[in-house]
Design a protein around this nucleic acid. Structure first.
Lengths: 157, 157
DNA sequence: ATTATAGGTCAAGTTCATTGACCTATAAGG
DNA sequence: CCTTATAGGTCAATGAACTTGACCTATAAT
């Protein structure tokens, strides 16, 4: 067993344990709202692209229409999101966070932002940039990430 | 919306998309063996700690005994692992990979090692170390990671 | 008028986990 | 020797988060 392979095995393990820790706190926090991680992901992306359509959202999440429908309805019933028929094409429904939804999304994501910020700060140097560089190589090939980038482009125009 | 918060939101997104890409290839590869990601994780940790007991394995994976039992039996039936009653205490079953299991584990993990290795290499500098530093802060608090470290300690003695 | 698109919904099936309950075999301690 | 603790196995019920397939409406585009 050579040194390099062992280092890389450690990397694989760190990915597993790191991701678990990363998702742990919000998972616990949303329990009392009767929702789960998938709902957090939906809230997160609606917050990033306010007024996103259902189709665009499922392209970003890379899930089926049916998989999105149920949690989306639950978020609506819990008064965390609103759906507005688009002016420019009445077939489109645009998704927005309610004030309550904004509050919850902010609270959940804030925990993760603080967690990562604290780590980057404590390690100092260019750790945030280096970590992001690595993850960006993995992420940039994803259809979901590419679709997100396109949405942000349009959003700015 | 300040710059820092936007950077950190990007970090959260990269974690989601990065992890998806990371797990994607092995997930596809094991489909034809009729097993899933959980089986890969089991194979991975048995490979790292050969002769590990069932209890220690579920401590590392942080899952219930019942959650481990079924995939473990499936791996046994597919002749990918063996279970040996321990000499020192006949209540313990020690888990080992068969040759076929070693072959498959190696193949699956090799894909991920190559993927990460290629990224670290292309970015150069201290990217691997920096990335690992960040993930290690997240991982080191996990009971599973701590249990793993203890196992490795004992293994060396 | 026809066809395509956006979205909604129902049904069945799968995977991966949970908790609770109960079982056997073995070990340890009085 | 008896009791209790530990390791592991198994069954059942439950739930979350998906999948594919099928079929529906409303709207838009040609």
């Amino acid at each position: 067993m050579n040194e390099e392979e062992q280092q890389l095995n450690n990397v694989l393990m760190l990915f597993y344990f790191g991701y678990r820790t990363f998702t742990e706190k919000p998972d616990q926090m949303i329990e009392k709202y009767g929702i789960q991680r998938v709902h957090h992901r939906i809230l997160f992306f609606i917050a990033r692209v306010q007024g996103i359509t259902v189709n665009d959202l499922l392209s970003i999440l890379e899930v089926s229409k049916q998989a999105l429908n149920v949690p989306l309805r639950q978020l609506y019933e819990k008064n965390l999101i609103t759906m507005v028929q688009a002016d420019y094409d009445k077939r489109y429904k645009q998704l927005y966070l309610t004030d309550k939804g904004k509050q919850l999304e902010s609270e959940l994501s804030q925990v993760q932002r603080e967690q990562m910020k604290t780590i980057f700060k404590s390690l100092g140097g260019n750790h945030q940039e280096a970590w992001s560089d690595v993850m960006n190589v993995l992420a940039k090939s994803r259809p979901g990430q590419q679709h997100f980038n396109k949405q942000i482009e349009e959003h700015r125009n």
